[in-house]
Design a protein around this nucleic acid. Structure first.
Length: 445
RNA sequence: UCCACAGUAGCUCAAUCGGCAGAGCAAUCGGCUGUUAACCGAUGGGUUGUAGGUUCGAGUCCUACCUGUGGAGCCA
């Protein structure tokens, strides 16, 4: 009696008669036998149909089967070193084949395709093994994020996506019509997080965020997912200590639970195995000095040009890559100039020209994966900041209230999930890190 | 928004100095009992991104536009 089986469990079913429900991933036939690579969502298994083992009409159906046709296969699992697939090493000797739907000519072949074509067919491309591996790792990263926070006393508190006020910078917000009033898609949950923090101590929000920046780079999406922890009575040192444990846990969790997927992606995991605390940290000022030294020493005129920087400038992509390249772990860059950062960041006591903030730059040129800081907790300073930034006091009254009623030193950060996925998977472009990327010139499918 | 490059068969690409529109893969048909992006033989497949211009003749040269790719900028 054949029993249903998921392909991920194929090794445990050796010798058993099983039923697989799935899709034909690829096929090759050789006279009186047909090799079918069948995927069921949990893996890919080679199913071998010999003419003598099937009713004639079913063998003919196997020979004629089109790529991505949906099928139900009955057969016996056997160990075979030659069998490809994920996990592979076992194959199914087919005794019956039922075709559920014969697919039309499938546009994506196992051969190479261009970026535009694949993105136009993103809804189908997701079935390909590379994309399958990425999306599974993404799910594991998200689970690791939530597990670590939940296990360390952080409470998930949701923040709104539809927000009423734009503050000072409407150009980077998507505006929508809210019953005749303008509303905006959230760029961050942080301000609401600070209110939630005062209620629960350590909180985090996790959801999609939206930025209408006309960024056309390999690291930017218009819609991306961000986790933002916010902690009461936290200093910059507390923040850095927490972040490195958190990041290391995520990386190590993927390494231990998604080996197969990292192999599919041909990721060099030795770089990831090294991601354990403590991470190096340098100040912004030190980073600028190192960049200037590097620019002075290099003989490459293009690199020299791209590394030009003066104290006070924010880092561009070449700067981030160069700084990260000086370390083999993620590096915390702290104490940026006040002007380069957000209005709510706490100025440094000894050097008021910089803020107590830290960006975490990933190795291998993957850029900023977290950005965080101590927040201003002094009511007078907050009021002054709000005024000088030209922020609507009416729209942000609720936020200003937070500094009036039991204000405490606090800190938090945001982590971009897609950049984390790109780094861990070793992907050259962020577009493959989310099922349906929203980019400057693409919102289909 | 700026710079560079590209657009030819379903896909990936060729086409010499401006002179017959071509291949691999995919598809279809046939062959093969161990394939790993199989292989072998055969068949079908084209408004060369759009609009205009130069020329006896334009995929190729010129102008504008559209679309995409790479990079920069932008980026609490």
């Amino acid at each position: 009696m054949a029993t249903p089986m998921l392909i991920q469990d194929i090794a445990a079913c050796d010798g058993q008669d099983v039923i697989i429900k799935g899709w034909l991933y690829n096929k090759t036939h050789k006279g009186k036998l047909v090799f079918m690579q069948v995927r069921d969502g949990t893996g890919i298994a080679q199913c071998v149909a010999f003419q003598k083992d099937l009713p004639p009409e079913q063998f003919e159906a196997a020979r004629a089967l089109t790529q991505e046709s949906s099928i139900i296969i009955t057969g016996r699992v056997r160990r075979d070193e030659r069998a490809p697939g994920y996990p592979g090493g076992y194959e199914v000797g087919v005794t019956a084949l039922e075709v559920i739907h014969e697919a039309e000519e499938y546009p994506i072949s196992p051969k190479e395709h261009g970026v535009e074509f694949l993105m136009d067919n993103r809804h189908l491309w997701l079935r390909s093994s590379h994309q399958w591996a990425i999306i599974r790792i993404r799910a594991t990263i998200i689970k690791a994020i939530r597990d670590w926070l939940d296990d360390h006393g952080y409470l998930l508190v949701d923040t709104p996506i539809l927000t009423p006020a734009a503050g000072e910078n409407t150009t980077t917000l998507f505006q929508i019509d809210y019953f005749g009033e303008p509303a905006f898609l959230a760029q961050t949950g942080q301000l609401y997080n600070e209110a939630n923090m005062a209620a629960h101590g350590k909180v985090y929000c996790f959801g999609p965020t939206f930025r209408a920046e006309k960024s056309k780079t390999r690291r930017h999406l218009m819609e991306f997912w961000m986790v933002e922890p916010e902690m009461a009575f936290f200093s910059l040192d507390d923040l850095i200590a927490m972040e490195q444990e958190f990041i290391a846990y995520i990386v190590q969790t993927v390494l231990t639970t998604r080996r197969q997927e990292l192999t599919i992606l041909e990721r060099d995991t030795t770089r990831l195995e090294n991601i354990i605390p403590p991470f190096p940290r340098i100040t912004y000022t030190e980073a600028v000095a190192r960049l200037q030294k590097l620019a002075a020493e290099t003989t490459d005129p293009e690199l020299k040009e791209s590394l030009q920087i003066e104290w006070g400038d924010d880092f561009g992509a070449p700067h981030e890559t160069a700084i990260a390249g000086m370390f083999d772990k993620p590096v915390f860059v702290t104490h940026y100039p006040v002007e380069a950062k957000a209005f709510y960041m706490q100025p440094n006591e000894e050097d008021p020209g910089v803020v107590n903030c830290t960006d975490l730059l990933a190795p291998e040129g993957y850029g900023e994966i977290t950005g965080g800081s101590e927040r201003i907790s002094d009511p007078a300073l907050m009021a002054e900041r709000v005024k000088t930034m030209g922020i609507s006091e009416e729209a942000y009254r609720w936020y200003i209230d937070l500094s009036r009623y039991g204000s405490v030193p606090h800190a938090g950060f945001g982590l971009g999930v897609e950049r984390m996925v790109a780094w861990i998977c070793g992907l050259p472009h962020i577009r493959e890190t989310i099922p349906y990327p929203r980019m400057l010139s693409r919102k289909y499918p």
